[in-house]
Amino acid sequence: MSDEAHMRAALSLAARGLGNTWPNPAVGCVILAADGQVVGRGWTQPGGRPHAETEALKRAGAAARGGTAYVTLEPCCHWGRTPPCTDAMIAAGVARVVVALRDPDPRVDGAGFSRLRAAGITVEEGLLAEDAASLNAGFIKRLRYGLPMVTLKLATTLDGRIATASKESRWITGPESRRASHGLRARHDAILVGSGTVLDDDPDLTCRLPGGVPIPAPRVVADARLRMPLGAKLVRTAREVPTLVATIPGHSESALAPLREAGVEILELPPGPQGLSMHGILTALATRGITRVLAEGGSGIAASLLREELADRLAWFHAPRVIGGDGIPASYELPLLELARAPKFRRVAHRTIGADVLTEFEREAG
């Protein structure tokens, strides 16, 4: 097998950690013995530790000596709660390290490469760097801009409606699409909705795929007016799954206390020009280590994210139905007077799921 094939295998391993490694990146590692046989595989474990390299070296054992390590992100060279991965590779006697992407963390950022080279290890970087950057877009964005990557998920009819005029929305898409939506939840660190979605649908916002996920994603509700009822599923299960309510200051303690007593964490954030700021919410989440956010609705959340240019990716499920102009749109007004100012996205994936279609987009820069 080629270097590229082994790196693609490492990237596949890294993807297993998405949604469960924050604040650390999701990394994959493949170890080849000197004779070219694969002797170790690893990926970042839930909670961010052990690291992928440590896991792969543990499986490889003595067979790693004189071999090659394929790693999707530059090995760390600093002490945290675990020793540096560079030291582990040096101690294992690895002769060559092939890395997809340099780590943008200022504690690493090339220093890992230097440490390996100083120990006489051959280092090659940049193989499938674009793929590695896409995989860890949330980790990179948090480090560079203090914000998580945001995927806006929309489930609509062909004419872009998420519910009828009476707010009936169950179920616009089919069971296959709903399972795919749970897969999206599993690959993100937190799930964001507005208070309107809680009032209309009373969701639990958990991943209900067989086997579940090691670390349930925190659920975040944007609720400037503190409308979420105490009887909502999110409140009743707040001690089982982390639940945060983002709101503006000024609410009475009598309104806040019952939520806190139920286990809900309150994030009081200064309002923006148009109310509760999505930028403020996302900044607060990034400060907590969140790197990937799945925004599930509704129309107000979608409009805010699009208006503030904070939706990095779209996961758009289209069902073969038409509701009409009196239905609730996927996004409220942005508003726009010029077509040139409309948010622009490029299609990156398109597939049929049951009777529905899922199209995925990435935001165009500039």
Rank of each mutant, 00 (worst) to 15 (best):
S2M: 12
P175A: 09
T247C: 14
G146I: 13
A88Y: 00
L127H: 04
L32W: 02
R59K: 15
E333L: 12
A303E: 01
E268D: 05
R8I: 03
L13A: 05
V30Y: 02
R227D: 12
G93E: 06
N24W: 11
T82G: 07
A60S: 14
G300K: 08
L18V: 02
K58T: 15
R115I: 02
D3C: 07
P335A: 13
A340E: 15
R225N: 15
I162W: 02
A217W: 00
P273I: 06
S169K: 04
G146T: 12
Y70H: 12
R16A: 15
S169T: 12
T197K: 06
C77R: 05
A118E: 13
E338R: 15
R161D: 10
V322E: 10
I290H: 02
I301L: 03
W22H: 14
G211I: 11
A349C: 06
E309P: 00
W79R: 14
A91R: 15
M278D: 00
P329R: 09
P75H: 06
P148E: 07
L234T: 06
N24D: 14
Q274H: 10
R307L: 09
D312I: 10
P218A: 10
L276I: 06
I162E: 04
I248D: 01
R65K: 15
G272W: 07
W43I: 01
G47M: 08
A10I: 08
P329I: 05
A224M: 09
E4I: 09
G289N: 06
T352L: 12
E253W: 08
I290D: 02
A52Q: 06
A95W: 06
L209D: 11
W316N: 07
A303K: 00
G138R: 03
L11K: 03
R107L: 15
S12I: 07
S331D: 03
S252R: 12
A26C: 14
F113A: 13
P23A: 13
R170W: 14
M7F: 11
R313E: 15
T197W: 01
V322M: 13
M278I: 03
I162C: 03
I90F: 09
G80C: 08
M278T: 01
C77K: 06
L147F: 12
V27K: 04
A319R: 01
V99L: 10
G28R: 00
T164Y: 14
H51G: 14
A100T: 02
L57G: 09
M228E: 03
M228K: 03
V235L: 12
E333T: 13
P242G: 11
G250A: 07
S134E: 15
R8G: 01
A284V: 07
I248Q: 10
G366D: 14
R313P: 02
R313W: 02
G120A: 11
E308R: 09
T206Y: 03
I191K: 06
Q37I: 07
G48A: 08
R288G: 11
L230G: 12
R161I: 07
F139V: 01
G327A: 08
R81Y: 10
V39A: 05
T206V: 14
A303V: 04
G275E: 10
E296K: 00
T197M: 11
G40Y: 06
A311T: 04
T72N: 05
E124C: 11
L285V: 01
G250K: 05
G298V: 01
L116Q: 05
T44D: 02
L276F: 06
G289D: 03
A222E: 04
A95L: 08
A319Q: 05
K153P: 04
G366H: 13
W316Y: 12
